[in-house]
Simulated assay, not measured.
Amino acid sequence: MTPEQKIEELGLTLPPPVAPVASYVATVRTGDLVYTSGQVPMVEGKLHQTGKLGVDLGVEEGQAQARVCALNAVAALKAELGELSRVRRIVKAVVFVASAPDFTAQPQVANGASDLLAEVFGEQGKHARSAVGVAALPLDAPVEVELIAEVA
């Protein structure tokens, strides 16, 4: 089963890639690696949810937003590669979580992105990861995800 078929089986739709909102490109390929720019939880051109974890959103809401971010990053990979079966491995995910000063569940929030990647890519979706709490993210996004993928 292709990653695209797995996405469909999960009841998800791969969105069109999110257009950059500033002076950068969505992906950069160097050798066998593709780096995605940070993806916020945009749905149909709008931020799906705003706010900070530990103030405006709980862990489950943050996981859902991380999942949207990861799906957007996968869409950026597809736009770069043409087909997701060219992804050999998700090497690393970096998940930024806009957090209240006393919020420490960034890894649990990041699981929303990590779990989606494993569901879509199987063993090749298991990756190294950083989950980082930050004071604020662009557009007041609660979560931002970037990926590094090894590709064929």
Score class of each variant (00 low, 15 high):
42 M>P: 01
11 G>N: 06
148 I>A: 10
106 Q>M: 06
55 V>K: 10
148 I>T: 13
77 L>T: 06
150 E>F: 03
146 E>L: 09
76 A>S: 09
152 A>I: 04
100 A>C: 06
81 L>S: 02
57 L>A: 12
67 R>W: 00
129 R>Y: 15
61 E>H: 06
13 T>P: 03
85 S>R: 14
59 V>Q: 11
151 V>L: 01
118 A>Y: 02
109 V>E: 10
140 D>I: 03
61 E>D: 14
79 A>L: 02
8 E>G: 03
42 M>H: 07
1 M>Y: 08
58 G>A: 12
29 R>S: 10
125 G>N: 00
114 S>H: 11
28 V>R: 13
25 V>R: 13
10 L>H: 01
31 G>T: 08
61 E>Y: 02
25 V>S: 12
98 A>E: 12
55 V>W: 02
136 A>T: 11
122 G>R: 10
140 D>L: 03
5 Q>K: 13
67 R>Y: 01
31 G>Y: 05
82 G>A: 09
89 R>D: 11
129 R>W: 12
11 G>R: 02
21 V>M: 06
138 P>F: 12
92 K>L: 08
86 R>I: 04
110 A>D: 07
81 L>R: 01
67 R>S: 08
54 G>D: 00
70 A>G: 04
9 E>N: 10
31 G>K: 04
37 S>I: 06
48 H>N: 08
59 V>P: 06
57 L>G: 08
79 A>H: 09
15 P>M: 14
127 H>K: 10
43 V>W: 03
23 S>K: 10
131 A>D: 11
67 R>T: 02
24 Y>L: 13
149 A>V: 05
41 P>M: 11
92 K>N: 11
62 G>Y: 01
115 D>I: 07
140 D>F: 07
24 Y>S: 13
85 S>Y: 06
136 A>H: 07
80 E>T: 03
140 D>W: 04
124 Q>P: 02
81 L>N: 01
104 T>H: 14
47 L>Q: 00
34 V>N: 08
40 V>P: 00
111 N>R: 14
144 E>M: 09
52 K>W: 05
62 G>A: 09
51 G>I: 11
59 V>F: 08
42 M>Y: 13
122 G>S: 09
12 L>V: 09
65 Q>V: 06
71 L>E: 01
43 V>Y: 04
5 Q>C: 04
42 M>L: 09
137 L>E: 06
93 A>R: 00
103 F>Y: 15
72 N>V: 03
56 D>V: 05
87 V>F: 11
40 V>G: 09
39 Q>N: 15
